[in-house]
Computed example of a mutant assay.
Amino acid sequence: PLPPLLPPSQKALMLELKSLQEEPVEAFRITLVDESDLYNWEVAIFGPPNTLYEGGYFKAHIKFPIDYPYSPPTFRFLTKMWHPNIYENGDVCISILHPPVDDSQSGGELPSERWNPTQNVRTILLSVISLLNEPTPQPMWMLRLCSGNGGTETVSATKAEAEKDGVKVPTTLAEYCIKTKVPSNDNSSDLLYDDLYDDDIDDEDEEEEDADCYDDDDSGNEES
């Protein structure tokens, strides 16, 4: 008998996960929250050097809708963050995560700045890094920093989590830009890919390391 057909979103997520594990985005570690659930991902983010978040180890969840990539996923930090574009509940305010519909909360965004099916996890991750690199200070955010509850305390609080996960957080630009494959403790992820037909995945040689980790055409989206 033929294998059951996979939902288009599940097939798309399998391919994206495989791509990100073989050619990672610098300063991110990607895993599934549960190996049997492709719609919930855990992301560990290394704070960019020369920013308030340098040396930090921040965790987040990406939750995908069943009609992905036609609707955007949600991106929520689990680590407490102090940032003008990150809400207290951890939700991130980035234009490409907003649905391409009229929204009174859009702040004048153009439809072209919002989500569309050509976006993917890689463009989201690059947008998050851009957000951490170039925060837009707001009065309340500056007040929090001045009261001692800002970026420095946030980074310090994440060091124990990094040690628990056995992760060495990069603190220099050279370390930050190194691409490394995500280690795998078992072959459960490989089993997910085996569910795809062989002709759906083209095996490619791993690309050479790119010394400029900000050189990516997908990172030019504006944040709201």
Rank of each mutant, 00 (worst) to 15 (best):
D212I: 05
P139F: 02
E134I: 04
Y87E: 10
I201L: 11
P170E: 11
D165K: 13
D200V: 10
N40Y: 12
D217H: 08
K11T: 11
T171L: 09
L125S: 10
P1L: 11
P3G: 04
L143Y: 08
L13H: 01
S184T: 15
F58N: 07
V25M: 05
T118G: 02
E161K: 11
D202G: 05
K164F: 11
D103G: 10
E163W: 07
S156A: 15
I62A: 00
E163T: 14
D102W: 10
Y70F: 13
S130T: 09
S219D: 12
N85M: 09
P73K: 04
Y70D: 02
F46T: 05
E153W: 02
T154S: 10
R114C: 04
N187M: 13
V121C: 10
W82R: 15
E42D: 06
N40D: 13
S189I: 15
Y197I: 12
P72T: 01
T152C: 07
T123V: 11
Q10V: 04
K18A: 08
E206G: 08
A12I: 08
M14C: 07
P48Y: 04
M140D: 15
L32R: 05
D186N: 15
Y176S: 14
G148K: 02
P73R: 01
S127E: 01
W141H: 12
F64E: 00
P1K: 09
P135F: 04
E204G: 07
Y214E: 06
Q138D: 09
E26S: 15
D67P: 00
E163P: 07
I129H: 12
P84D: 00
D190A: 12
A211H: 09
S184P: 09
T172D: 10
W141Y: 12
F28K: 06
N133A: 08
T74H: 00
P24R: 09
D199T: 12
P72E: 02
A162R: 11
F46V: 06
G108K: 06
P8E: 01
Y176M: 13
P170R: 03
A157E: 12
L2V: 14
A27C: 07
F77P: 03
G107A: 07
T154K: 04
R29G: 01
E209H: 13
V92H: 06
E54N: 15
D165Q: 13
E204K: 15
I45W: 06
V128W: 03
W41C: 09
N116H: 02
G166C: 11
N221G: 03
